[in-house]
Design a protein around this nucleic acid. Structure first.
Length: 536
DNA sequence: TAACAGGATTTCC
DNA sequence: GGAAATCCTGTTA
């Protein structure tokens, strides 16, 4: 079981997170939690989650909502995200083969291992340049996989202990100056032969010998993910350390806080998704932007994707999908499934990945987008991650107030371009917004204004919600939750590595005089308010 | 101790 | 010249 959990974590570090054509389209899973190795040594509670067992689905979101999820990873309360993923059967086979003792010991509820998430966006904050960590990771990946990212297209790690150790070691450390409470996975690695589990714990340091775990006889393996369930059920650790559970969907939309550790992996995943999309676009002669597809191109893409995933060809595809790309993107997963029960789910998931990949590309190239000063129509209607996750959310959770807020924010701003467009539309009480919103001077790159940047962050709550969030959006009141991180992001955007919150807040205070921002009536730490017309 | 406030100066575009 | 960065001193919670 320990090896299984470790493997699940290791998968997060090695898997390309892309949908592979060989993947079974029905290998659906929902990600609701990430676990660490802290509580492997739990007692044995009754196997009360057996009822949640499925042959091919391991659905952590079905766990009780109050099931505490021990984690050292910064929490993020993102809405539930259902991820449709196909993943490499062969690699599953490999993994299961190596874990045969565990599998053999499992009862009839034959879970599969928790697969890695598919490609997910790495940030709504588009970093123009790869971090050194990313570069290091890329170098490593190239070296290890014979210089080809394509080798990463299938989660086919050779699961020996050393490889897992290696993958854990390549994870970058958490930024030392970050407010993030998250210790880096790297910090959980100790020497070359063992992985030190949970450095935060006070008394006992758990060392896991992967070799011995992999060779563990079947009789010692706990059946049916029992220990995992124990870990998920037991909230003592998080209570002890005042931690909140991490919804693993934050890896999709709310990755911000774990980004420091998983950024290289995410970047690779996005890179792979984009490469895949590039190839298909070239083959089909279609745009990378699904929003730009004609109906005929939609049909071409659907056929291509069905073939790619070896799904049954759809009869009357033209009749079933008369939408163009923009309309297609708005279809819910239910609608996809209703029209194509066998393959609709996979098609919808793949379309989400394409949208994310395109959104990421837009983010990367957003400076260019700013300069073009094109309003929203040029943008993907759900290009932000809030939108992407909201789209999927509708299939798994009821919309709550936050969801509707997210929808509002979709209309407002994700990129500097739309931020400035919004500012322009809201009037020119001081003249500044419209003045700044014209042309290339506003928006991305080093010319963005701080207030615009803050609005940009606020507009992507799925990504930045743990760093900065609206308190009362209608009044323009927001709170900086992680001052260090916000300052860091601002410094990165402005290419000012020495930026800190002290300087950033000084700039904010300059806005007081200019009527751009102010402190709230009841002054609270790290809480500011946009003045009209800047907050609409 | 971190956040806050604001003056003064410098840097950048 | 304007905006932001930087540096500074002092105050507050």
């Amino acid at each position: 079981m320990q090896s299984e959990l470790i493997e699940a974590v290791a998968q997060l570090t090695v898997a390309p997170l892309s949908v592979s054509p060989q993947m079974p389209h029905n290998s659906q899973f929902k990600l609701g939690a990430v676990v660490n190795t802290e509580q492997f040594q739990s007692q044995t509670p009754p196997d009360q989650y057996a009822a949640y067992s499925y042959a091919d689905n391991f659905d952590l979101s079905l766990l009780p909502e109050d099931a505490g999820i021990p984690t050292t990873v910064y929490q993020y309360n993102a809405p539930q995200i259902k991820i449709e993923s196909a993943w490499d059967c062969s690699s599953v086979g490999d993994i299961q083969e190596q874990l045969a003792p565990v599998a053999a010991a499992s009862n009839s509820s034959s879970h599969q291992l928790i697969p890695p998430p598919p490609a997910y966006p790495h940030s709504a904050y588009p970093s123009p340049q790869s971090s050194p960590q990313q570069s290091d990771f890329a170098s490593f990946a190239y070296g290890k996989y014979n210089g080809s990212y394509d080798c990463l297209s299938s989660p086919c790690p050779s699961l020996d202990a050393s490889s897992i150790k290696q993958e854990l070691h390549i994870l970058p450390p958490s930024p030392p100056e970050s407010n993030c409470e998250t210790p880096s996975p790297r910090s959980a690695c100790s020497d070359s032969s063992s992985i030190k589990a949970e450095p935060l714990d006070v008394d006992v340091e758990n060392y896991i010998d992967l070799n011995s775990l992999l060779q563990q006889p079947a009789a010692e393996a706990k059946p049916s993910h029992q220990l995992l369930r124990e870990c998920l059920e037991d909230t003592t650790f998080q209570k002890k350390h005042n931690l909140k559970p991490l919804a693993l969907e934050s890896f999709i939309g709310g990755l911000a806080e774990v980004r420091g550790d998983f950024e290289p992996v995410i970047s690779l995943a996005l890179e792979h998704a984009k490469r895949e999309a590039d190839a298909i676009c070239a083959e089909l002669q279609i745009s990378q932007d699904p929003n730009a597809w004609t109906s005929a191109q939609v049909h071409a893409w659907l056929r291509s994707t069905l073939a790619q995933f070896k799904l049954p060809p759809a009869l009357n595809l033209e009749l079933q999908f008369s939408e163009d790309g923009a309309a297609l993107a708005l279809l819910s997963e239910e609608e996809f499934t209703r029209r194509l029960p066998e393959s609709g789910s996979t098609l919808h998931a793949q379309l989400e990945i394409w949208k994310m990949a395109y959104a990421d590309q837009l983010g990367t190239n957003h400076n260019h987008a700013i300069q073009s000063a094109q309003p929203a129509p040029a943008m993907w209607p759900t290009l932000d991650y809030a939108a992407a996750t909201t789209t999927t959310t509708t299939t798994t959770t009821s919309l709550n107030h936050e969801d509707s807020e997210d929808e509002d924010e979709m209309e407002v701003s994700v990129t500097p371009a739309t931020v400035t467009a919004t500012a322009t539309a809201t009037g020119t009480a001081t003249g500044t917004p419209s003045k700044r919103s014209t042309g290339a001077r506003s928006g991305g790159g080093s010319h963005i204004h701080l207030w615009q940047f803050l609005k940009e962050l606020l507009a992507a709550p799925q990504v930045n919600g743990t760093a900065i969030r609206w308190i009362d959006r209608s009044k323009g009141i927001f709170k900086i939750e992680d001052s260090v991180r916000v300052a860091k992001l601002w410094g990165r955007r402005k290419n000012r590595p020495a930026m800190n919150y002290d300087k950033l807040s000084r700039s904010i205070r300059q806005y007081y005089k200019k009527g751009i921002m102010k402190k709230t009536e009841r002054s609270q730490r790290l809480v500011y308010q946009f003045c009209q017309p800047y907050h609409q």
